[in-house]
Simulated assay, not measured.
Amino acid sequence: MTVNPSSVVDDSAFSVRRTIRIAAPQAKVWEAVTEPEHISRWFGQAAFEGSYAGARGTLTWPDRAPIPVRIEAIEAQRMVSYRWGNDDASGVVSGELDDAHSTVFTFTLAEVADGTELTVVETGFETTSDPAANLADHRDGWNGELDKLVTLLESDS
């Protein structure tokens, strides 16, 4: 399995960033970050009404209520941006997507000699109830989830 650097928090920009390499074709990585049946294999159980900007859906994990998600932007094979529910000042994630209290994560893909470079950047933590704690939590989350993605795609190759 390819070993990748950890996520980095930028406290001043309220963002988390991680760039990884995956020894798999860009088309395969694209499917893994955009198609619900593939997202569900490494992230959370995903359900979407479509694969276009504005499409709504949910991500669900066994230990929490469904989190509302919306595709913000999509450029085939290159970039997809999702807005997802995050806690508001009260620390609660509601069943509806609240643009004022949500974060946006964007996957950007680039073909490289040995496969695909994938960068995720998540922004908007300044609107959450505890920005520092949420930044740390999501930094750790992206480390674990993207490591699962690498393992999945490289074992399928």
Rank of each mutant, 00 (worst) to 15 (best):
M1W: 00
T2I: 12
P5D: 10
S7Q: 08
V9E: 05
V9W: 01
D10W: 05
D10K: 08
D11A: 15
F14A: 12
V16M: 02
R17G: 02
I20T: 00
I20C: 00
I22N: 00
A32K: 00
A32V: 00
E35L: 11
E35S: 04
I39S: 01
W42V: 06
F43G: 02
F43W: 14
G44F: 11
Q45L: 13
Q45A: 12
F48T: 03
E49W: 00
E49H: 07
G50Y: 06
G50H: 07
G50M: 09
Y52P: 05
A53M: 10
G54R: 10
A55M: 04
T58P: 01
A65F: 03
I67W: 02
I71P: 00
E72S: 10
A73H: 13
A73C: 08
A73V: 05
E75R: 13
Q77S: 13
Q77R: 13
M79E: 14
Y82K: 05
R83P: 03
R83L: 12
W84C: 06
G85Q: 09
N86W: 13
D87H: 09
D88W: 02
A89H: 12
S90C: 00
S90P: 02
V93T: 12
S94W: 03
E96Q: 14
E96R: 11
S102E: 06
T103W: 00
V104N: 08
F105W: 12
F105S: 07
T106I: 07
L109A: 04
A110S: 15
D114Q: 15
D114I: 11
D114F: 04
G115T: 02
E117D: 06
V121K: 07
E122S: 09
E122W: 03
T128M: 08
T128S: 13
S129E: 05
D130V: 05
P131D: 03
A133K: 12
A136R: 14
D137H: 11
H138S: 14
R139A: 15
D140G: 15
D140L: 13
N143C: 08
G144D: 14
L146F: 07
D147C: 01
D147Y: 01
V150L: 08
L153Y: 01
S155C: 04
